[in-house]
Amino acid sequence: MNEMNTALPRQSPTANQLGTDVTGHLPDRAGVPGTAGFRPEDDAVWRLAVDHLHVRSNDGHTAYSYGLAAALCDLHPGADRDVVLPAIILHDTGWSKVPEDEVLEAIRPGGGRRDLVLRHEKEGAAIAADILARLGHDPARTAEIVEIIDGHDTRLTALSLNDSLVKDADKLWRLTPHGVDTVMDWFGLTREQAHTLIGSRVHDHLFTDTARTMARALAAVATIDSTPQRIALG
């Protein structure tokens, strides 16, 4: 499952249609919202977590969810980044302890295996505790992160703002182009069918107004991707 949707978005242009180098006129990246990427301390967590994420496209899912979580933290000054960001990196590590051929049974439409979902939460909490201890993470924050991970899917209420943002970032990924692509391949769905399934599992299950606004924007893009007008453009 780790081979799905691994194509990297282009990092360099295929042409310069203007014909003139404008790179010297770009603004300072530090002043543009959403351009920071991974914090060094979170990269350390990522490096220890990533080997647990090569199941069900959780590596790509986690990377995109990190960006969404960082954006949510930007818009919620009361959030603790030292809880939210490590928690989102570590939240799905427990799927590595579930037999790979059973992973999608846990979340399939018309069925599901709650026992497997619970297992991945418990295993992920244990992996998170181990990784954060190895990194010397603050014990109080580690305890909060472990509590968030142990219940991030099955607990229908949020323990705190930090928990809300982790839950919201996790769900918002499904509406990204990468998320829609991934769900299509999980269940053999068309893009339109996948978006319909995703929407039913996201919009009414978010905790913050900020995430609900993000979800509507992402859904608008996903909807247009399946319209005849957009498809005709090739």
Rank of each mutant, 00 (worst) to 15 (best):
Q11L: 12
L18S: 04
R29K: 14
A30C: 07
G31E: 10
G31Q: 11
V32T: 13
P33G: 09
G34V: 08
D43T: 07
D43I: 04
R47V: 09
L48F: 07
V50M: 10
V55F: 09
R56L: 13
G60H: 08
G60Y: 09
A69P: 11
A69L: 10
A70K: 12
L72V: 15
D74E: 15
H76G: 10
P77S: 14
V84C: 08
A87P: 15
L90I: 13
L90H: 02
D92P: 13
T93R: 03
S96Y: 00
K97A: 15
E100L: 07
D101L: 05
E102M: 05
V103N: 02
E105P: 01
G112T: 04
D115Y: 09
L116Y: 01
L118T: 04
E121I: 03
E123A: 15
A126C: 06
I127R: 00
L132D: 02
A133K: 15
G136W: 15
A143C: 07
E144F: 00
E144N: 05
I149L: 12
I149A: 04
D150W: 03
D150P: 00
H152A: 07
S160T: 10
S160Q: 07
D163C: 10
L165E: 03
V166Y: 00
A169C: 04
A169I: 04
A169F: 03
D170M: 11
W173D: 08
T176Q: 10
T176E: 08
M184D: 00
L189V: 07
T190Q: 05
A194W: 09
H195C: 05
I198K: 01
F207D: 01
T213P: 01
A215F: 14
A217K: 10
S226H: 05
T227Q: 08
P228R: 09
R230Q: 13
L233F: 12
